[in-house]
């Protein structure tokens, strides 16, 4: 339970003199839901971009497994077992649900020219396997009815589920969810919450960035609070709820950095 998956070491990001993220340190343990919260502009999204390789940190490094990563190409992070969703859903609007989820299977697919051009047995088997994996995900995420619908015909909540399915299709160790409930109704939020718990049960670690305090408090095993790019608190939901700095940050008091 307490096995460490990823270690965040002194990660900082500087945007032209402004520290969007400053010296963040934390551990991510196996099979937990780690909540990351903080008021607007606290650097949550930038931090998530660093974890998913879309933003290079100005300082600091990550340790994933035994590898030390300071500057990384974005496509490598997916190979290291990190997958993410976005605050504004990023899907290929012109493709249907199945095809979108299949994109997530890219890393496992057979891509040798020989296999593709001659449709070798292992190639066909692999493709079949990917499709059945995608089918399973579609079923788990209750998207069966929409399997062949174009993304542009889905509701926001359905799109979020498709995006999560695509992330799971990459078979990540760590799933980063960037405000999965932004713009959803309370019922839909409830649905997504259940889904996140189910993902955890399957052995995937979830890093959850969320605005909705109630939701993050109820779901997370541990919570890290950011403000002005810095970590101001870390602990169980109960500890966080009582933490003075957190209350100040959320009530608008200035936390002296």
């Amino acid at each position: 339970m307490n096995e460490q998956l990823m270690q965040v070491n002194n990660i900082s990001v500087n945007f032209g003199g402004l520290w969007a993220v400053k010296s963040i340190e934390m551990d991510v343990k196996k099979n937990e839901i780690l909540g990351v919260m903080g008021p607007n502009g606290a650097g949550k999204s930038t931090f998530l971009n660093v974890l998913s390789g879309l933003q290079q940190p100005s300082e600091g490094y990550l340790i994933i497994g035994t590898q030390k990563i300071s500057q990384s190409k974005p496509w490598n992070m997916a190979k290291l077992g990190l997958s993410r969703s976005f605050q504004t859903v990023r899907l290929l609007r012109e493709l249907n649900v199945l095809d979108n989820i299949l994109i997530g299977g890219h890393m496992d697919a057979q891509k040798q020219a020989w296999d593709i051009l001659f449709r070798t047995k292992r190639y066909r088997q692999k493709e079949k396997e990917l499709v059945s994996r995608a089918d399973n995900l579609i079923e788990t995420l209750e998207l069966s009815e929409k399997k062949y619908e174009k993304i542009s015909r889905l509701s926001t909540e359905e799109r979020r589920r498709v995006e999560i399915a695509r992330s799971l299709m990459t078979q990540p160790n760590i799933l980063l969810l960037d405000e999965p409930c932004a713009g959803l109704s309370p019922q839909e939020t409830e649905e997504i919450s259940k889904l996140i718990l189910r993902i955890k049960e399957q052995g995937v670690t979830v890093i959850l960035v969320e605005h909705n305090v109630k939701m993050i408090m109820s779901l997370s095993d541990r919570i890290v609070v950011l403000d002005h790019g810095q970590k101001i608190a870390e602990g169980t939901p109960d500890e966080i709820a009582k933490h003075e700095d957190v209350i100040k940050a959320y009530l608008g008091g200035s936390v002296n950095a």
């Binding site: 974005p74 496509w75 993410r84 290929l92 890219h106 992330s167």
Partner: peptide, 17 residues
């Protein structure tokens, strides 16, 4: 599939490896 993904959205392509 990879081509069509990077055609429509490079960032999606990045995060799917």
């Amino acid at each position: 599939r990879a081509w069509s993904c990077l055609k429509q959205d490079e960032i999606t392509a990045y995060v799917t490896g």
